[in-house]
Design a protein around this nucleic acid. Sequence first.
DNA 1: ATTGGCAATGTTATCGATAACATTATTTTG
DNA 2: CAAAATAATGTTATCGATAACATTGCCAAT
Lengths: 334, 334
Amino acid sequence: MIMNTYELLGEERSLIATLNDVAKLANVSKMTVSRVINHPDKVTNDLKQLVYQAMHEVDYHPNMAAKALVNNSTQIIKFCVLEDIDTTEPYYMNLMIGIARALDAQQYSLQLVTRQNFDIGKCDGYVVTGMRKKDFDWIGNLKKPVVIFGENRFGFDYVDTNNKAGTFMISELAVKRGYKRLIFIGMDSHESFEYSREAGYLQLIQENQMVSEIHRFDNHSHLSQQFIIENWDDFGPDTCFICASDRLALGAERGIESCGGLIPVDYGVTGFDGVFLNQVAFPRITTVKQSIVEMGMACGEKLLNKIVNHIDKDGSLMFEPKISMGGTVRDSSK
Amino acid sequence: MIMNTYELLGEERSLIATLNDVAKLANVSKMTVSRVINHPDKVTNDLKQLVYQAMHEVDYHPNMAAKALVNNSTQIIKFCVLEDIDTTEPYYMNLMIGIARALDAQQYSLQLVTRQNFDIGKCDGYVVTGMRKKDFDWIGNLKKPVVIFGENRFGFDYVDTNNKAGTFMISELAVKRGYKRLIFIGMDSHESFEYSREAGYLQLIQENQMVSEIHRFDNHSHLSQQFIIENWDDFGPDTCFICASDRLALGAERGIESCGGLIPVDYGVTGFDGVFLNQVAFPRITTVKQSIVEMGMACGEKLLNKIVNHIDKDGSLMFEPKISMGGTVRDSSK
DNA sequence: ATTGGCAATGTTATCGATAACATTATTTTG
DNA sequence: CAAAATAATGTTATCGATAACATTGCCAAT
């Protein structure tokens, strides 16, 4: 029997099975195998079974390069972090894990880009985060599907925590635990998520006919710390500081402690994020915890859905946050 | 003139130039263009010029899918984080930026994986970090090139900060600034980088004929904080705590403050890392700062070098760290 | 002057998967 | 019951780039 070049090459290259191998084993043409994968409704059940078994037998995995070539695609998703990386919240790492996990399932790969190298290389879609208002212009001009991580009011599909519900829940907790005065320490940023977090706090305040107090700072712990220290005389016991981020909460916690205030007995502090910072806070901050990895997966899935099914708008997704009990809010009303 | 299917398709697909377009414009064959790219020495200078100009004119970028298909490669690098993601240091983000930047230049893409999805999908090489001793077995069995981020003594190519030099430098600084007693607060881990950091401290101690004191804890700030508080009576002024991580330093800083010690006048604290945590430390920690992004780029470049040139061992790379002056060490000897 | 050898370029086949078209088998319909 | 429609499968051409082989042209060596 004469072995032709093709077969020789096939054996030399590697041990990875191709469509062809499956086809031979199942005694059908490559197209049939391809159809079983992409248009299973167009193939007889009998054949499908044969092919499935053959695929399993040779452990078939599609060659993404070939697929990409014929589809004129790249199998690459760009994850674009628009914030300054040095001040980046550590939870982006978790977000990426989530996105990557969703993409892996469909053999897409994730590419991390920043503003500088945004345009280098092609891709099939984008997950964008850290957007500020000014970014929405050019985002709108992208020619590939996009999913935003972080709520926005410009009509882009997004995935985010239900920010409003988060601060509402945790403010509610504070009230239930008997704190009489709730002060909101927010971020001095005109972004959607900040408004939503404030809104949650405000709603609870209104429902309980309390007085709202909102202070805003850049998102640095020493600013909230300083604020507490400078105004310490004004804060009697039974005050709880509802902070819009864990950083601000950490500062508040330290401010209170350095002024001799007792946490959580007399003073409460709550944060928002639930990642990493808690590892350096003691007592740990009672905070609004987001399911970052799950949200990442949602971003990936949503984007793939848009790409694979050529969907323009796929809607947005809000994840309900959970409260992570730390030691900065009383266990029960005293 | 009859337009064939090929040309029609070519125009419909997209506006991206291919080898063929360049070839036509330069009046040469595709192979010549390909050679100009891959084996420039085998082409006349005249032709090379023609081709270069044509490439520029049509803004040619190679199609990675086609390349991958013919090379039986994937153009994918896996970045494997072996640590538990939730306790992951935030600087990994910077590391990824660096790696991604290096890979972009050669149109490779980066895929983030963890232990769970490590095996899903093919790749051309790995960057691995967060390795512990037990991991070295299976890492050694990988069939694709690997670069480790983080020093190791098992012979794998790695990129890392010069850990020993880092603690040496910063201990030296402490001595110069007049602290008389240097206490090392290390991580309770039997890993290479920890030994190196201790070694740097020890060398400085020996050269100055001082007495070494090493204490080890898990890498949590409240442990070092607790340690300081519990042993406060033992620590007179002019003591400097050389910490093996910023987390431990943060704890030390807080411990000292809560005991009423004056930083940096009477007590010094130094850390190691220089990313993120400093944003929540006040005063900012004087620490050993690593060039994470550059190290990431080095990982990427080293790996690509191994892949493209089929190099087995490429040696390791140590980056010299710098001291980042914060407020936890005196400005000058008092 | 003729030929062997090398250098510079072109042609063909190939990677693996798929769309478009061709063929065959099956069913429906008047 | 024959013709037409439909369904199930196979063939061919194609994506873009490259290795292997084929061709051409030029120079040196005999």
